[in-house]
């Protein structure tokens, strides 16, 4: 996966762990704190990472996984009341851990646990979201959603702007109520698998489409006090965030630039924001 340019990121070091936006396991209810309790030797971990980055040796990777498994277990436990066996959740979380290990950049000077948490939580959430769609969304709504996608895309082409609900309803020959229902489904379940263009996260690097606006992106990470969370996002999601909130581009413009549909941009945007907000509310509710 291609990396964004990463010159001069030292400012980011001041950002993590204000205790509210994102709270690592260290700050959570004292009894559990796995990393304190079992005491990951941070110097040892750093050394492992340094060697892993150089050699990409699978044995080192495995050792890193073992070292951080308590973090995965801790995070997985937060989801245990949703009817899935804990072992399965740990499996899912470990996929997130592996992604985080492969992407971690020592230059960032953030603790690995801070960096990895959003990726692991994101993986767990996605697991439930995917399942949620398969289990709970009635077939009728899935189909409604797909046909609305099509209508919105066609209408946008025809009239050269985003259509109103009334226009969508007329074209789809549906009551407005049903269109609204379909739109709610679209973002409530925010699942991309049904109509995502082939490639997903491994699609060509977004930076190839866009050029270097990395200074502002860095400012975003800094300003946000969300640095580690944003840094943990897939590249495409990061760019969409940046273009929409700082670049002043509309969803349609972003869609044109990235070669995906506007509704797909909408879903990615909503999903990303949901991930970023998780820390904010979940910690309060469990803490």
């Amino acid at each position: 996966m291609a990396q964004l340019p990463q010159g001069g990121r030292t400012r980011v070091t001041e950002v993590p762990n204000d205790g509210r936006v994102h709270r690592g396991p260290e700050g959570a209810d004292g009894g559990v704190a796995p990393l304190n309790g079992r005491s990951v030797d941070r110097g040892h971990a750093k050394d492992l990472f340094r060697r892993f980055v150089e050699t990409r040796n699978p044995a080192l990777r495995e050792e890193l996984v073992g070292l951080h498994l308590p973090l995965v277990e801790y995070l997985a436990r937060r989801f245990r009341n949703r009817g899935e066996p804990l072992e399965d959740l740990v499996q899912v979380g470990t996929i997130g851990l592996l992604k985080a290990i492969d992407r971690f950049d020592l230059e960032r000077e953030v603790e690995f646990s801070t960096y990895a948490t959003p990726t692991i939580v994101g993986e767990l959430k996605r697991h439930f979201r995917d399942k949620g769609w398969a289990v709970r969304v009635p077939r009728r709504l899935q189909e409604l959603n797909l046909s609305l996608n099509k209508v919105v895309a066609e209408l946008s082409q025809e009239i050269g702007r985003s259509p109103t609900i009334a226009e969508i309803a007329t074209k789809a020959r549906l009551p407005e109520e049903e269109v609204l229902e379909g739109l709610d489904t679209s973002n409530a379940y925010a699942v991309v698998s049904l109509d995502a263009p082939a490639g997903g996260e491994d699609a060509p690097a977004v930076s190839e489409h866009i050029g270097a606006e990395d200074e502002s992106l860095e400012a975003l990470e800094y300003r946000a006090a969300l640095g580690p969370l944003i840094a943990g996002l897939p590249e495409r999601e990061r760019w969409i965030l940046y273009l929409r909130f700082f670049g002043g581009m509309t969803q349609s413009q972003i869609a044109g630039r990235l070669g995906i549909s506007q509704m797909h941009v909408s879903r990615l945007l909503n999903r990303t924001l949901a991930v970023l907000r998780e820390g904010l509310l979940e910690d309060e509710e469990t803490g």
């Binding site: 506007q262 909408s266 904010l280």
Partner: peptide, 23 residues
């Protein structure tokens, strides 16, 4: 008569404002 995109922006704003106050 908001457009689809305007509605989506609005939903994001409502979410964000509520989330911030809930926090």
């Amino acid at each position: 008569q908001f457009t689809y995109e305007e509605i989506d922006d609005l939903r994001i704003a409502v979410d964000e404002a509520c989330t911030q106050l809930l926090a």
